[in-house]
């Protein structure tokens, strides 16, 4: 078998795996939309609609600062992507690997084991992008206060979205392979909750300046870079981390999570 025939075979199998996941996603489209937009919908509704109306205002620095909605939007889009990585990759994977072993037929596809794991990351990323897109109209339309977002650099936005969604998929793979089904509840409490609250979703990273230990502590959280990267792309006027730092951190996080996930996937599927 020549190398090109072999690679073509891998490509076909890979697209078969993607097609299967797309089919399953299409079948569950309504639940997908609900689980994707519920959190951002309620977040913007409470923080950017109810709070301003009842005078519990949260604003960026100073009275003339940006509306809270403007600060919130990039963070909520980033969070939606991470949530997608968990609910579209980690949870099904934990079940398929732990209880039903139904991934076995895909493990037996004529491709290297790591490619099956990669497909999970890529498909998680596809769903991450869809989730980000689904969230956008919600967070744009619901707030009572003006929302000031505009894209200054489309290439930057595309790169950030690509990296953030791949990172979310890789996070989903790593969690799905490392966490046993009976530990899923614990994973939510120990990983997801701290990640979102300390992920610079509700505040820009620079605003943490008064709490230095926290400002440096949150740097291990990949969601920080996703939020800040989207801030750089969507609300460039507001303070955000340097773009180069964001991009290199996102690449590093994606690579490390992918490697950990692929390794754990192999350990879980080949005895």
């Amino acid at each position: 078998m020549t190398e090109s025939v072999r690679v073509r075979g891998y490509g076909r199998a890979f697209s078969g795996l993607i097609l299967r996941d797309l089919r399953v996603l299409r079948r569950g489209l309504a639940p997908f939309v609900v689980r994707t937009i519920m959190n951002p919908l309620l977040s913007v509704f409470v923080f950017a609609y109810v709070f301003p109306k009842i005078g519990q205002g949260m604003r960026g620095a100073g009275a003339a600062g940006p509306s809270f909605a403007t600060i919130l939007i990039p963070g909520l889009v980033a969070m939606a992507m991470v949530f997608q990585g968990i609910s579209a990759v980690a949870l099904p994977l934990a079940i398929e690997l732990g209880g039903t072993r139904e991934i076995e037929d895909r493990i037996l596809a004529p491709v290297p084991n790591w490619l099956v794991a990669m497909e999970k990351i890529v498909f998680g990323a596809v769903q991450g992008v869809l989730a980000g897109l689904a969230v956008f109209p919600v967070v744009y339309l619901v707030p009572a206060t003006p929302v000031d977002i505009h894209v200054q650099s489309w290439p930057l936005l595309l790169v950030v979205v690509a990296l953030a969604s791949l990172g979310s998929g890789a996070l989903g793979l790593a969690l799905g392979t490392l966490v046993r089904p009976q530990q899923v509840g614990l994973m939510f409490a120990l990983v997801l909750v701290p990640m979102t609250f300390l992920g610079c979703v509700y505040y820009p990273w620079a605003a943490l300046h008064p709490i230095r230990w926290l400002q440096f502590g949150v740097l291990i959280n990949p969601l920080v870079y996703m939020s800040e990267g989207l801030r750089a792309a969507l609300t460039p006027e507001l303070s955000h981390m340097p773009v180069l730092l964001v991009l290199s951190a996102l690449v590093t996080a994606t690579v490390l999570l992918s490697l950990a996930g692929i390794r754990a996937f192999r350990r879980r599927t080949i005895a």
Binding site: R12, A13, G16, R23, D105, R106, A109, V111
Partner: peptide, 15 residues
Amino acid sequence: CTVRENLYYHCRYFG
């Protein structure tokens, strides 16, 4: 996946 899809996607995995 349905019964038929179990067979169909298996074939797709094999190219």
